[in-house]
C-alpha cells in the first residue's frame, strides 16, 4: 500500500473521521464492559453521569482537568517544536516541591508567598527540562529517554525528601510534607464551590500560549523548527535557542500543574500527588492536535473519562483502568483518523 496526499479534503472527511475515531473508542468501552460482565450501555451511562451528572461531578471533573490543562499545554508547546518532552511528570513534581518549600519554610505573608511559589515552581520546572534539552542540542542525546528517566529519579528524590528533611513532624509517620498555611493557598473562584483559582490560571495559560503561538516571532520560530529543523536553520532561525526557549516554557507550564495541585487542592506534597498527569498530558495534547485552546477541551474530556470511570467503577464493578485503556485507544484511533483526513490509502 501507498499513501497519496489529498490536496482538498472534503468536510465529510475532516469531520467524519475524527468522529469515527471517537465512536470506535466508545465501542471499545462497551466491549471492555462486556468482558467485565457489565451492561455496556449502563456502563457508558454511569461514566457520563459520574463525569457530568451533578454539580459535584462537574466540579470534580473541572478540578481533575486543571493539572491536565497545564501538562497538556506543556506537551503541546514542546511537541510542536518536535521536542519530545515526556518528563512533564518530573516537572510537575519539582513544581509542587518548590511550592511547598516556599510556602512552608519562608514564613511569608500569603499575598507575597503565592506569586513567589508560582514563580519558583515555573523556574524549577524550566530548569528540570533545560538539562535534557541542552544535552540534545549540544551533544545530540535523545531527549525522550532522558526526560523519561528523570521522572523516576525525581520520584525517588521526592520520596527521600518526604521521608527525610521535608517530612511533616505532625504527620503521624506518613511521608507527607507540612501543609501550606491557610493564606498561602489559592482561593476558590466562587465562595462555596469546590473549584480553585488554579483552574482560572490554567485557562489564562492556555490563552497565553495561544497568543504566543499565533502572535509572536517565537511562536513562528517554534512552528518552523518543528516542521523542518534543517529548513528553519537555513532560513536563519537559531534552532538550538528556539528549542531551549520552548523547553523553558514547556517545563514551566508542567510545573504549574504541581503548583496548582498543591496550592489549590491538596495543601501539601505527597508522593502520590499525581496519578500520571504528566503522561496523560500527552494524550490531552494529541487529542487537541497540539492546539492550546483545544487542550482545554480535551483536558475536560480526559478528566471526565477519569472521574466518570472512578464513579462507574464504584457502582458497576468494572475496574477503573478502563479509563486508561480508553484514552490510549482514543489516542491511537485519533492520530490515525487525522492522518487519513490528509492522505488516501492506495494499493500498490
Amino acid at each position: 500500500m501507498r499513501l497519496d496526499p489529498i490536496t482538498t479534503p472534503s468536510p465529510a472527511r475532516t469531520v467524519g473521521l475524527p468522529a469515527l475515531a471517537l465512536g470506535a473508542t466508545v465501542l471499545v468501552a462497551m466491549g471492555l464492559a462486556l468482558i467485565a460482565g457489565a451492561d455496556p450501555l449502563a456502563t457508558l451511562g454511569l461514566i457520563v453521569k459520574g463525569a457530568a451528572g451533578s454539580k459535584f461531578a462537574l466540579l470534580e471533573t473541572l478540578n481533575r482537568a486543571t493539572p491536565l490543562i497545564f501538562t497538556g499545554l506543556a506537551i503541546s508547546v514542546a511537541f510542536r517544536a518536535k521536542l519530545w518532552n515526556i518528563g512533564a511528570e518530573a516537572q510537575l513534581y519539582v513544581g509542587a516541591l518548590v511550592t511547598v518549600v516556599i510556602g512552608t519554610q519562608l514564613g511569608l505573608p500569603g499575598p507575597l508567598a503565592l506569586p513567589l511559589m508560582a514563580l519558583g515552581a515555573v523556574l524549577a520546572g524550566a530548569l528540570v527540562l533545560l538539562g535534557p534539552v541542552l544535552l540534545k542540542t549540544r551533544l545530540g542525546v535523545d531527549e525522550v529517554v532522558t526526560t523519561l528517566l528523570l521522572n523516576f529519579i525525581m520520584a525517588l528524590f521526592i520520596s527521600y525528601l518526604l521521608e527525610g528533611p521535608l517530612k511533616d513532624p505532625m504527620g503521624m509517620g506518613w511521608p507527607k510534607s507540612p501543609a501550606l498555611p491557610r493564606d498561602a493557598r489559592l482561593p476558590r473562584i466562587v465562595e462555596g464551590l469546590r473549584l480553585h483559582w488554579g483552574f482560572g490560571l490554567a485557562l489564562i495559560s492556555a490563552l497565553g500560549v495561544w497568543i504566543m503561538q499565533t502572535r509572536t516571532t517565537l511562536g513562528y520560530e517554534i512552528r518552523a523548527t518543528g516542521l523542518n529543523p534543517e529548513a528553519a536553520r537555513f532560513a536563519g532561525i537559531p534552532v538550538g535557542r528556539v528549542l531551549v526557549k520552548t523547553a523553558l516554557i514547556s517545563g514551566g507550564l508542567a510545573a504549574l500543574a504541581g503548583f496548582s495541585e498543591v496550592a489549590g487542592l491538596k495543601g501539601n506534597l505527597t508522593a502520590d500527588l499525581s496519578p500520571g498527569f504528566g503522561y496523560t498530558g500527552i494524550v490531552v495534547a494529541m487529542l487537541a492536535l497540539l492546539h492550546p485552546l483545544g487542550v482545554v477541551v480535551s483536558a475536560l474530556f480526559v478528566a471526565g473519562v477519569f472521574v466518570g470511570a472512578d464513579s462507574m467503577s464504584r457502582a458497576a464493578g468494572v475496574p477503573t483502568y478502563i479509563a486508561d485503556i480508553l484514552l490510549a485507544t482514543a489516542l491511537l484511533f485519533m492520530v490515525l483518523a487525522i492522518l487519513l483526513t490528509k492522505v488516501r490509502v492506495v494499493r500498490g
Binding site: I86, Y279, Y321, I325, A328, L331, L332, V335
Partner: peptide, 13 residues
C-alpha cells in the same frame, strides 16, 4: 507511548 499506555492499562485491567 500510546502502545505503552494501552498495554500497561490492559494488563492492569
Amino acid at each position: 507511548l500510546g502502545i505503552t499506555m494501552l498495554a500497561t492499562s490492559s494488563a492492569y485491567y
